[in-house]
Structure formats: structure tokens, C-alpha cells
């Protein structure tokens, strides 16, 4: 064990992490409808070690499926902060990117990554299960290469995120 350098240990850890990704899906909008086919026998995301989980403590991925308004943002932040490092966020569909069809709504958050660090977006309305799976594969690659460092960014730029959150949530 002691022969392993920290770098190598991290590599091994990342290798393990990418093979076992547990996901909590925060279903705010219509996007969740695409998840059942992703999980079940047609696409079967468990092939990649992905599995849906229920509490933030157990999960590695926060999947925000759909638009985020002010009310749900507070919950998303709570859930995100309760997750254990390393943790990743995926914005699902166009709404978390720019508000989607709700772009001019008074209560909808336009850009999720102003409030929590999003590692990956899946564009589309709705993204097909194939797109979802591709996204997960991409995330795995990112983890493997150490690029999925949203949680580190969040810690580094905590003041920035908190400021943005405060502005919206009051």
C-alpha cells in the first residue's frame, strides 16, 4: 500500500468511482419521464454500474431533470450540500441550461450553474435515453481523467455561489 503514490491511489479511486455511480434524480419537471426507459430493460443503465438511489447521502450524481424555480432551488442546494464528496451534478434537458420554454418566467432559474457547479449538461427537450447514457459515459470519462471536479469548484468559489443563491432566494 505504501508504495502507491497519492496520484496512483487517486487514479485507482477514480477508476472505482466511475464504475459505481449512484444517482439521485431531482425530478422538477417533465424530464423524469425519460428516466424509466433508461433504467429498465431496453437501455438498462445498470450495465455501467449506474443505479438510482434515494437519499443524497448515498448518491454520487445529482440529476436535475427539468426546470428549476426559486422554490425548488433551495431544495436542490440542500440536497447538493448533503451529498458526500466526490459528487457530480448533471443538468438534464434545456431548462437547467437557459430556462428552456420558461425562459421568461418570473420564478424560473435560467442558469443552474450560477448556483451549483454543474459538471455536465444534457441538451435537448427532451434528451432521449441514448443521450442520457452518452452523458453518463462522458461523465465516467471525465471522472477517470479527473475533470469532473464540480465539487472542488463549489468549495473554491463558495462565496460566488452563495452570493448568487442569496440574490435569488433572499
Amino acid at each position: 500500500m505504501d508504495r502507491l503514490t497519492e496520484e496512483q491511489a487517486k487514479t485507482i479511486a477514480n477508476m472505482l468511482r466511475k464504475r459505481s455511480l449512484w444517482m439521485i434524480h431531482y425530478c422538477t419537471g417533465c424530464g423524469a419521464i425519460e428516466l424509466p426507459p433508461t433504467m429498465t430493460s431496453r437501455y438498462d443503465m445498470s450495465r455501467f454500474g449506474l443505479a438510482p438511489f434515494v437519499t443524497p447521502r448515498q448518491s454520487d450524481i445529482l440529476l436535475v431533470t427539468g426546470y428549476v424555480n426559486i422554490k425548488t432551488l433551495r431544495r436542490i442546494i440542500t440536497v447538493y450540500e448533503q451529498m458526500l464528496d466526490p459528487k457530480y451534478v448533471i443538468g438534464f434537458g434545456s431548462c437547467p441550461i437557459n430556462g428552456g420554454v420558461y425562459w421568461d418566467s418570473y420564478s424560473v432559474i435560467k442558469r443552474l450553474d450560477r448556483y451549483i457547479p454543474v459538471d455536465l449538461y444534457i441538451a435537448g427537450c427532451m434528451p432521449r435515453p441514448e443521450a442520457v447514457i452518452t452523458a453518463f459515459r462522458t461523465l465516467m470519462d471525465m471522472i477517470d481523467q479527473g475533470k469532473a471536479d464540480g465539487y472542488k469548484r463549489y468549495k473554491r468559489n463558495l462565496a460566488y455561489y452563495k452570493e448568487n443563491q442569496r440574490k435569488v432566494l433572499g
Partner: peptide, 11 residues
Amino acid sequence: RYGPPIIQPIY
């Protein structure tokens, strides 16, 4: 389904 790799619990 196809199912996860056999050693998934170890992961």
C-alpha cells in the same frame, strides 16, 4: 436486462 458487471458489488 443485461445487468451490471458481475463484480459490481465490489466496485
